[in-house]
Design a protein around this nucleic acid. Structure first.
Lengths: 238, 238
DNA sequence: CCTCTTGTGCTACTTAAGTACTTTTACTAC
DNA sequence: GTAGTAAAAGTACTTAAGTAGCACAAGAGG
């Protein structure tokens, strides 16, 4: 375990890009970090209703973790959020301490910084000014969920798939990231559909030359084609 | 306009059942209410992107207001929340001050208590202990949105319709409330479907004797039948 | 090297939900 | 009263998405 005063320097770049603690100074960070410790979780680690999760709050410093839901009857999965570096969880539990019926799975070898919920609540009470950032962040999450709901209701699967792809294109490199190495099944879970259907749509995109795919590999060939396709979809929904 | 010190006694029962301000004492309420004023909006009043809404926060004291979304392409509507007495809006704007692209429409003659956003923010800063309630409330809203998303993905329209009906049965009177006087179109907007589809499902429920319907009138005839039907739906989704 | 698992590609089939249309109802104005 | 009209309800057709199945390919691990 890394001594407290090293955590900040070790993870400075991640921590400073962490929205929830947007304007903390170095010394504020070091104060807060004194209650954190580091944890490593290996790929495919699955966290199902672990009590511990009610009592800790995490900042991801490496790797991806999917936060998902399983329907008790159909046993279908739906990925709510694909968390990555600088993301935090679980805000829900922090807010009301109620069990959050949701599952987590590490898609990569993952590192997190962990703090007991109570400590974080204490810290908030000692630094009430910080509440505002938490509220802002909560607002942002609600908007994300809200637009998620709207998309599900208003748009078809082609549109949802196209948007997912476009949202995950790195604006500089123009390459697909975060989701480029996922199997069709995981893509389907992200947009609330099934593997077969997603595959069907991906085939069409491959045929028209806008993407390329292989086992666990998705690549964007032509963004403008994707954008054009999205426009067509929108037009047709009129 | 009612003098400030009367607002509390006038709306005591509504205000004390208002979750967001759960544990305010009478004097705290009176302090807070000094920044509020009353407004009346008549039925069918529609509030579309009114600037004013960015700058005020409202507590509903009478009537229903639907908060809804319109798809820019298909022009379909989706009702996000059906707000009623003791509900508040818009928390999103309070949190981050960003425009919330959402519409409001009064389903009844409505009364609200209004406060300028800045005043409420000031009040929160003066009473940082209250932040906690706001966070808890935000958590609750997020959970509601989350389960909304899950329902959309995991369940079919019959199930969603059945749940909507069952959620709006008054536990004492066993009568349908809040949504019992809405046309099929509004019911459809609530579950993210279309009027025709909702009507089809309602017909079936009417045929098997679990509900009764007339123009703008829905009535529950037999709750146990609805519950049984819901169970069947769940079983079949396996 | 072989075997086993996981993921992909494709086909044929089924069905729920959306669309577009018609009919009925309730209310207003004369 | 009744004619006109808007809203709501009801119906028939079409389509997108889900399901099931199988063959094949790539990697992982022995």
């Amino acid at each position: 375990m890394v001594p407290t005063n090293d955590l900040y320097s070790k993870y400075e770049s991640v921590l400073t890009s962490c929205e929830l603690f947007a304007d903390l100074t170095k010394s504020q960070w070091q104060d807060l970090l004194s209650d954190f410790h580091e944890e490593k979780w290996s790929k495919n680690t699955c966290i199902i209703n672990h009590q511990k999760f009610l009592f800790h709050f995490y900042i991801i410093t490496r790797g991806r973790i999917k936060m998902y839901n399983v329907d008790e009857f159909s046993e279908k999965e739906h990925t709510l959020f694909l968390l990555k570096e600088a993301d935090v969880f679980d805000l829900f539990c922090l807010f009301d301490g109620t069990k959050h019926r949701v599952y987590y799975e590490c898609l990569d070898n993952t590192k997190v910084l962990a703090i007991p919920m109570d400590r974080l609540r204490d810290w908030l009470n000692k630094n009430p000014h910080q509440y505002q950032h938490f509220l802002t962040y909560a607002g942002k999450m609600m908007r994300a969920l809200e637009s998620n709901v709207s998309q599900l209701i208003f748009t078809n699967i082609t549109t949802r798939l196209l948007k997912l792809l476009l949202e995950n294109v790195n604006s500089k490199s123009k390459k697909l990231e975060h989701i480029n190495d996922l199997p069709n099944k995981e893509i389907a879970n992200l947009i609330g559909s099934t593997r077969a259907v997603v595959n069907r749509h991906l085939q069409l995109l491959k045929q028209n030359g806008s993407i390329d795919m292989a086992r666990n590999q998705l690549e964007i060939k032509d963004i403008s084609l994707l954008l054009k396709e999205l426009e067509n979809q929108n037009r047709n929904q009129k």
